[in-house]
C-alpha cells in the first residue's frame, strides 16, 4: 500500500478484529481511544497488549469524555500508569455528532479540538 511519503489515518472497525490482522510494518502508530467506562477500558487494555505483541509501533492513548481529574487518573491507572491525552467532555462534540458535521467546522476553538490537536502535534512530529 504505497502512499509515497503521505500519511494514512485509518479509522478501524470497533474491536480488535482488524488490529489482529495487521503485521508490523504496515502500521507506524496505533491510537487507542478510550473513555472512562469499564467496558471501554477492558477493550483498550486488550488493544494495547495486542499492539505491543504485534509490534505495531508507537501506541498513544486518547481518553475521551473526561469530566474531571479523577476520570483521567482512573483510566491512567487502569492502563498501567501510562501517559494519556485527555479530551474533555465537550457539548460541542455532542452538538457536532447530533448534526453529523465535522467538529473542526462546528467548533474549531472548542476544548475538545484543542486537546485533539496535541495528538496531532505529537504525530506530526513523528511524520516529519
Amino acid at each position: 500500500m504505497d502512499i509515497d511519503g503521505g500519511v494514512l489515518v485509518a479509522d478501524l472497525e470497533a474491536g480488535l478484529g482488524t488490529l489482529s490482522r495487521l503485521e508490523a510494518g504496515p502500521v507506524d502508530a496505533v491510537v487507542v481511544v478510550v473513555e472512562p467506562t469499564a467496558k471501554s477500558i477492558e477493550v483498550a487494555t486488550r488493544a494495547i497488549d495486542l499492539a505491543a505483541e504485534q509490534q505495531l509501533g508507537e501506541v498513544i492513548v486518547v481518553v475521551n469524555r473526561v469530566t474531571n481529574e479523577d476520570d483521567e487518573a482512573h483510566v491512567r491507572s487502569a492502563l498501567g500508569g501510562r501517559e494519556v491525552i485527555a479530551v474533555p467532555d465537550d457539548p460541542e462534540v455532542i452538538a457536532a455528532d447530533r448534526a453529523g458535521v465535522g467538529l473542526l467546522d462546528a467548533a474549531p476553538q472548542s476544548p475538545a479540538v484543542a486537546a485533539l490537536m496535541t495528538l496531532t502535534d505529537r504525530l506530526a512530529g513523528a511524520a516529519a
Binding site: L8, A10, V31, V34, A126
Partner: peptide
C-alpha cells in the same frame, strides 16, 4: 506514515 485508530465502539474513534 500509517496510523490506525482503534477502540471499543462509541468511544470516539
Amino acid at each position: 506514515m500509517k496510523i490506525a485508530v482503534v477502540g471499543k465502539g462509541g468511544v470516539g474513534k
